[in-house]
Amino acid sequence: MEKPKIFIANPVPEDVEEFLKESCECVKWDFRYPKTLEGILENIRDVDGVIQVGMKIDDRILDNAPKLKVVSNISVGYNNYDLDAMKRRGIIGTNTPGVLDNTVSDLILGLILNSARRIPELNRFTKSGSWVKADNSDLFGKDIHGSSLGIIGMGRIGEKVARRAKLGFGMDVSYYNRGRKLEVEEELGIVYRPMEEILKISDFVLLMTPLTPETTHLVGEKELKLMKASAFLINASRGQVVDEKALIKALEEGWIAGAGLDVYEKEPIDADNPLLRLQNAVTVPHIGSATTKTRDEMAWAAAKALVDELYGKNSGMRVPELS
């Protein structure tokens, strides 16, 4: 049998590339240059599979890739998939759940601690030589131990965060989810609450929902106004879950105390976005899963899923809507 042909659209570790080459004919984007639509269209014309991060897979792409059978995401989120367009053509889409849960959860605790204890701000303060006196009460932060965390969207990552918050930091954890998770409630000692109540009582509100039409702008002006003035909003899911304009207003006008953000409505975020001028917003560049080890594991998982599917085996990694 002739080897299937694939397009490697994002960098993968060398050993993963070697693995792909063993069973596929590979074309690779020249990563010195940013990707262009024309370039992508040219590369996918005759491929059977694509391995990538965040590439919009819609009619425009699919119309130009008549042989395409499998698209593999090196990510958990798959809002880049136009599920209807893929379904109509019988294209298989995979993602890499599970691999990154702990790593993303670490970052979320990092965002909570960095917001509450103002670590990036104080790092800049110290680095710029502004630390001159012993009385530093204007630099104080807020305690996270013993405070309340409300998680909106309780999936695998939510559970890992709840473990850290509850068992590690002694936080009071409640959650909102479409379906209740009684086992998790019992195991971790966490409490289910309606979303409005979570917004009203939590010291930290964490958004962990996937991005769907229902969750787009789930948190807007009304929701931010329900939050305590001393509370923090943490988002490490998808930027569009929050109405960013409303969030900026909330931070500028003190409706809430601060925010810890890994994701934005537009990524990379525009350099003139007002969020970037706010000291009470911790802003990191979508690095939730970005450790060398986890990214390697994600690339491995995505590569194995792609090869399995191209050779007619169910990888077990298909996204639910396309399996």
Partner: peptide, 13 residues
Amino acid sequence: ISAARRLPELDTF
């Protein structure tokens, strides 16, 4: 976590 995941550095970035 800040040192390992480079949050302050990447916030400034």
